[in-house]
Simulated assay, not measured.
Amino acid sequence: MARPRAFDEKQVLDAVREQFWDGGYAATSTEDLMRVSGLGKGSLYAAFGSKRQLFLRALHSYTDDAHGHLRKALAEAPRAVDALRMLLEAPIGEGARRGCLMANSTSELGNADPEVLRHAHRTYETSTTLIADCVTRAQREGDVPAGADPITLARALLAAQQGIVFMSRTGLDTATLTSTARSLAAQLLPDHSGG
């Protein structure tokens, strides 16, 4: 009879996700994973498979969480255009220098690992759809021109946001990043309210 697992799977996944996020895939050793998870090698790999399988599970949990946060942030803003502007400033602040785990992983592994590349594509398509839905709401609210294509604008906003993420990794100061994000917002989401 198999013994029940004596650890919290989500807690372990969160811990290894943080390790991969800080160190990257290649630089993260089995010893690092054992240290942050508190599990021995046998238990870790019996539960999650290989280092690559564990990484993919952690990456999927990251993108699931990120999409949950994005959905909530876009839906809860009183006006959709404010949510879209906030999207550009979201990568600024404490912890921003870590970048985005999905973008970091795609840069590190995308050319060598087709599964990571496929997951990145699905992730950005899901993000684009969520943002496009918010653009459509902003159009209904009269803050974005009705003739704008929601998908095209969503892709432009996502590309701008990822540019801010990258710039934050270079060590640019918060004031410069904020000014850049606001300039992008003014160009991509000009004020059409007449106010």
Rank of each mutant, 00 (worst) to 15 (best):
R140P: 01
I164W: 06
Y45H: 15
D22Y: 01
S193P: 06
R98M: 08
D113A: 00
A185I: 11
D143T: 15
R17C: 03
L153M: 12
A77Q: 11
I131L: 10
L153E: 04
G142V: 06
E115F: 02
S183I: 06
H119V: 07
A112N: 07
T129M: 05
I151D: 09
L184I: 02
L87W: 04
M1S: 14
L158V: 03
G24V: 08
R97N: 06
V135E: 02
H119W: 14
L74C: 05
L101I: 02
A160T: 03
T176N: 08
Q11D: 13
W21G: 00
V144L: 03
P91A: 03
V36P: 01
A120Q: 05
P145R: 14
Y62Q: 07
L153F: 08
M167L: 12
L33C: 06
C134N: 11
W21E: 01
F20S: 00
C134E: 06
I131A: 08
L117P: 01
E125T: 14
R122C: 08
F48S: 00
L84P: 09
A46Q: 15
Q187H: 13
N111C: 02
N104V: 09
Q162S: 11
E76A: 12
T63I: 11
A138P: 05
K10C: 07
M34A: 12
F7A: 08
A112K: 07
G68W: 02
R35S: 15
L130H: 03
L33H: 07
L44P: 12
E9M: 04
A156W: 04
D14M: 01
L70Y: 06
R71I: 00
F55A: 02
L153T: 05
A160W: 04
Y62S: 12
A120D: 09
R35A: 15
S193E: 07
H60G: 08
L13C: 04
V36S: 05
S105Y: 04
S43W: 13
A181W: 01
A159K: 01
C100A: 04
D32M: 07
D22T: 07
T123W: 15
P78S: 11
G49M: 02
G68N: 07
D22L: 10
R17T: 01
A80I: 00
E76V: 09
K72T: 12
E89N: 00
S50R: 01
G195S: 11
G147D: 15
P190T: 11
Y62D: 13
P150C: 09
G194H: 11
A148G: 00
T63N: 10
R5D: 14
L101E: 03
V165C: 05
A2S: 09
K41R: 15
D22A: 12
T106P: 00
L84M: 06
M102A: 14
E125M: 15
S50Q: 03
D64Q: 14
A181P: 04
A73W: 02
S183C: 13
G142K: 06
L84N: 06
A46I: 00
G195K: 14
